[in-house]
């Protein structure tokens, strides 16, 4: 009983702004005063965060803390939810992505997304990877498209496993392979940023390790924001880690210092496993 009360006390620590290093010198994304509402309910409170070029930022926090909601703001995926409202400013390369003149279609081509549950289209592996390129008319002939599909699959580390089965359905692959197929599909459009929403939560450790390696390789070319429930994963792959709590961004810092020397009480409680 006393333990539970103690826990609630730890939960009630007041959050006054974000501690650590939320801003970067060379930002790809700049978020300022971002609030998100679902109907009358506010899901995210005043988030200020930069994501630097070629950086991997991990977002951690207990379930329902708003980290996925925030991630989905970055490519305006929340537009598809009618009751969702976003205020504040999110800038990509200095341009506000919620500006009236911004086209969400173009934005989503520049900011790719990999989802928690692997969601390949129920089409062939080839068609899955080629879909984005066909959609945007990125290639002018079949050979170019073949090359693009092959290149994307190689970069997603899947080509060796599927090179003889390109025309078999993507849904027939294993969970880990499906998720890498989704990554291949995303990088085939050659976005500037890749958002990953718990990409390994449904995978076994071996498949997870493969995807984590892939993320580190991809960060050479892309900016990556990842939401994860696994603190080890955040520690392994990310440069900076952001801790969200009840819709508020509590702490952002270099990953090493978040896990070894958290500034905020809540962060410490979370990473030491006292709740969450």
């Amino acid at each position: 009983m006393t333990e539970a009360i103690e826990k609630r006390d730890e939960f009630d620590v007041e959050i006054k702004g974000t501690v650590g290093k939320p801003f970067a010198d060379d930002p790809k994304f700049e978020s300022r005063n971002v609030d998100v509402f679902y109907g009358d309910k506010q899901a995210i409170f005043d988030v200020n965060l930069d994501i630097a070029k070629n950086e991997i930022v991990a977002m951690i926090g207990p379930s329902g803390c708003g980290k996925s909601t925030y991630l989905r703001c970055l490519n305006r995926m929340n537009d598809t939810i009618p009751i969702c409202r976003v205020t504040g400013h999110i800038k990509l390369d200095g341009e506000d992505i919620y500006d009236k003149h911004q086209d969400p279609v173009l934005l989503r081509a520049r900011v790719g997304m990999v989802f928690q549950k692997a969601n390949p289209f129920p089409k062939s592996i080839y068609d899955n990877v080629a879909y984005g390129a066909r959609l945007h008319g990125l290639t002018s002939n079949k050979t170019e498209l073949d090359d693009l599909v092959e290149k994307s699959l190689i970069r997603a580390g899947l080509f060796k496993e599927v090179k003889d089965d390109l025309h078999k359905p993507g849904t027939g692959l294993s969970g880990g392979q499906q998720q890498r197929l989704c990554i291949a599909r995303t990088i085939a459009v050659d976005p500037e940023v890749i958002l990953m929403d718990e990409p390994t939560s449904a995978l076994d450790p071996i498949a997870t390790a493969l995807i984590e390696e892939l993320m580190i390789e991809l960060s050479a070319k892309y900016t990556i924001a990842i939401v994860t429930h696994s603190m080890q994963q955040a520690a392994r792959v990310s440069n900076r880690t952001a801790y969200f709590h009840l819709g508020k961004l509590v702490e952002v810092n270099d990953t090493d210092s978040v896990f070894t020397n958290p500034e905020h009480q809540l962060t410490e409680n979370y990473i030491t496993g006292r709740f969450g």
Binding site: N75, M77, T80, R108, F115, N119, Y131, G132, T186
Partner: peptide, 9 residues
């Protein structure tokens, strides 16, 4: 499936 398509633009 819809999200996957939206996500690709």
């Amino acid at each position: 499936i819809r999200e996957a398509a939206y996500g690709l633009g």
